[in-house]
Simulated assay, not measured.
Amino acid sequence: METRPLGGTGAEVTEIGLGTWELGGDWGDVAEAEAREAINAALDAGVNFLDTADVYGSGRSERLIRDVLAERDEDPFVATKAGRMLDPHTADGYDEAHLREFVDDSRERLGVESLDLVQLHCPPTDVYYQPSTFEALETLREEGRIDDYGVSVERVEQGLKAIEYPGVETVQIIFNPFRQRPRELFLREAANRNVGVIVRVPLASGLLTGALSPETEFPDNDHRNFNREGDAFDVGETFAGVPFERGLEAVDAIEPVVPEGQSMAQFALRWILDHDAVTTVIPGSSSPAHIRDNVAAADLPRLSAERHAAVRSVYDEYIREHVHQRW
């Protein structure tokens, strides 16, 4: 699998990584053995970028990564996130004391002296107008607690504001055929500033796998059940903010555009990777077969201009009104 430079970190990371939210929680029950198997499958497939967060299963995801890596020779790049442990989750909590506490806890759970990358975890918008937060991250870097820092954002505007801070090396953002706004300005600005772009929710919580239907039922503890209206966190994290039924209609409209021999998931991942400003894409899965299928998308040829145009048409007809100006 090809690699791409991750901003100014000096790291070269695989085009497909592994997101581990699903292995921590909010996606139904995933047994520990199953979660370990998923991480091992990703590493076996050549993935060298793992994304996690302290809040995923209250540290479960970080501990699982530590335990799996302790049994292997690979040294993948591990990005984690901090901030969502705050209660209440307010901008003034993103101070040096809290960030040091969160970083030290993640260091312990991951079993490392210094975190490869810590990302502010979708903080309130006011944080991006709070230079003291980024000064605190710089202090933690100087102290050797973290190697680099970045942000995970909900909105394009937050990402554009974040990259005004020179120490921000990466931005994690939702970008897929159902969330196309980042391609208008953000991707260009990130490339101009040599900022790494980590794409999450690439398959719109499973919509863009083509495996869901109106009859699909989700467990009570799966966010695709309990967060459809944004009751627990930003609704844009669930089905990329697209109403479920409308998303299914859009998938049906995209299906004829998918090249023969490709899965819908591979098509969506290839669509994302065709944007050169993207560094890595982090689909999550607990299925080794799905992980291998996702990784294979990196080796597929670029999509034609005609297929990209067809995806834009589907977006304009089915999706744009629901998401474009919101995020």
Results as ranks from 00 to 15, higher is better:
residue 185 L to P: 02
residue 99 L to F: 12
residue 72 R to T: 08
residue 237 E to R: 10
residue 61 S to Y: 11
residue 6 L to T: 10
residue 307 R to L: 10
residue 20 T to K: 08
residue 319 I to T: 08
residue 28 G to H: 11
residue 184 E to S: 03
residue 271 W to I: 08
residue 129 Y to W: 07
residue 303 L to V: 02
residue 247 G to F: 03
residue 265 A to T: 06
residue 267 F to P: 06
residue 21 W to I: 12
residue 11 A to Y: 15
residue 227 N to L: 03
residue 131 P to F: 01
residue 294 N to F: 11
residue 307 R to C: 04
residue 108 E to G: 02
residue 12 E to L: 12
residue 39 I to H: 05
residue 124 P to V: 13
residue 152 S to M: 08
residue 321 E to P: 01
residue 245 E to I: 04
residue 168 V to H: 01
residue 161 K to S: 02
residue 68 V to M: 06
residue 323 V to I: 13
residue 293 D to P: 13
residue 54 D to T: 10
residue 31 A to E: 14
residue 228 R to D: 08
residue 114 S to C: 11
residue 71 E to R: 12
residue 143 E to Y: 00
residue 278 V to T: 07
residue 63 R to P: 03
residue 266 Q to C: 09
residue 1 M to N: 00
residue 186 F to E: 01
residue 68 V to E: 04
residue 269 L to C: 07
residue 296 A to T: 12
residue 252 D to R: 11
residue 231 D to I: 03
residue 170 T to S: 12
residue 80 T to L: 12
residue 78 V to K: 13
residue 291 I to Y: 10
residue 316 D to R: 09
residue 274 D to T: 03
residue 182 P to D: 05
residue 299 D to T: 07
residue 37 E to L: 14
residue 264 M to T: 11
residue 105 D to R: 13
residue 109 R to Y: 06
residue 241 G to D: 04
residue 38 A to R: 07
residue 149 Y to R: 01
residue 193 R to K: 13
residue 6 L to F: 09
residue 165 Y to E: 14
residue 111 G to A: 11
residue 135 E to W: 00
residue 156 V to G: 00
residue 274 D to V: 01
residue 41 A to S: 12
residue 58 S to Y: 15
residue 37 E to F: 08
residue 96 E to I: 14
residue 315 Y to T: 06
residue 179 R to P: 00
residue 51 D to E: 15
residue 197 V to M: 05
residue 260 E to P: 14
residue 204 A to W: 08
residue 83 G to A: 11
residue 196 G to E: 05
residue 56 Y to N: 03
residue 37 E to M: 07
residue 260 E to C: 14
residue 176 N to W: 01
residue 127 V to F: 03
residue 103 V to D: 06
residue 312 R to H: 11
residue 247 G to S: 07
residue 219 P to D: 15
residue 290 H to D: 14
residue 162 A to N: 10
residue 107 R to G: 09
residue 148 D to Q: 10
residue 49 F to E: 14
residue 99 L to Y: 11
residue 257 V to D: 07
residue 207 L to Q: 07
residue 106 S to W: 07
residue 254 I to Y: 05
residue 183 R to G: 02
residue 212 L to C: 00
residue 275 H to L: 03
residue 222 D to R: 04
residue 161 K to N: 03
residue 101 E to P: 04
residue 233 F to N: 13
residue 115 L to D: 07
residue 320 R to Q: 11
residue 264 M to L: 11
residue 157 E to D: 05
residue 251 V to E: 10
residue 87 D to S: 14
residue 153 V to A: 00
